[in-house]
């Protein structure tokens, strides 16, 4: 079993085509949609967490690339520098997946890496440059 996070970029012409369901049907992969930005006639972005057999996962990604979808691994390389963070929490409402949360009692801001989809909005939104991203 493998569990990976990927960012899929759909070119305009593929946005209205049924593609992702094939991962389930042909490759037996399970997925969870972490983020989706799909608009008709525009490029679409889908962030998936995919579970399944390692070999089938690789085949599935190959299939996507063959159809014209750009596949990018979502290496979870967003990190928080606790020395730079001042626990203000201005990042909290910016995060689309609640990966940045505040402890109600201490007002300490915590970064929950497992929830992060590496969209990068916190990186530009943090005034103290405490968040960084590496692909």
């Amino acid at each position: 079993m493998t569990k990976r996070r990927v960012v899929l970029h759909f070119p305009k012409e593929l946005v209205d085509k049924p593609i992702v369901y094939r991962l389930v049907k042909d490759f037996g992969l399970e997925f969870n949609i972490l983020k989706a930005e799909v608009n008709p006639k525009e490029e679409g972005v889908l962030v998936l967490e995919i579970r399944g057999n390692e070999e089938e996962f690789l085949k599935g990604m190959e299939f996507l690339e063959d159809t014209g979808v750009k596949v990018q691994p979502l290496s979870q390389d967003v990190s928080m520098d606790k020395d730079k963070c001042v626990d203000c929490g201005v990042c909290i409402p910016l995060c689309p997946t609640q990966a940045l949360v505040r402890d109600e009692a201490s007002f300490k801001v915590e970064f929950i890496k497992e929830r992060c989809i590496a969209c990068g909005i916190c990186v530009s939104g943090c005034p103290y440059k405490a968040m960084s991203i590496k692909f």
């Binding site: 909290i92 409402p93 201490s106 300490k108």
Partner: peptide, 21 residues
Amino acid sequence: SGRIKIANKEVPTGCLSSIKK
């Protein structure tokens, strides 16, 4: 509390000051 209501919409709040500091 992290959420306020404006024009019947729930809006998440962010703080620029650090209450912890």
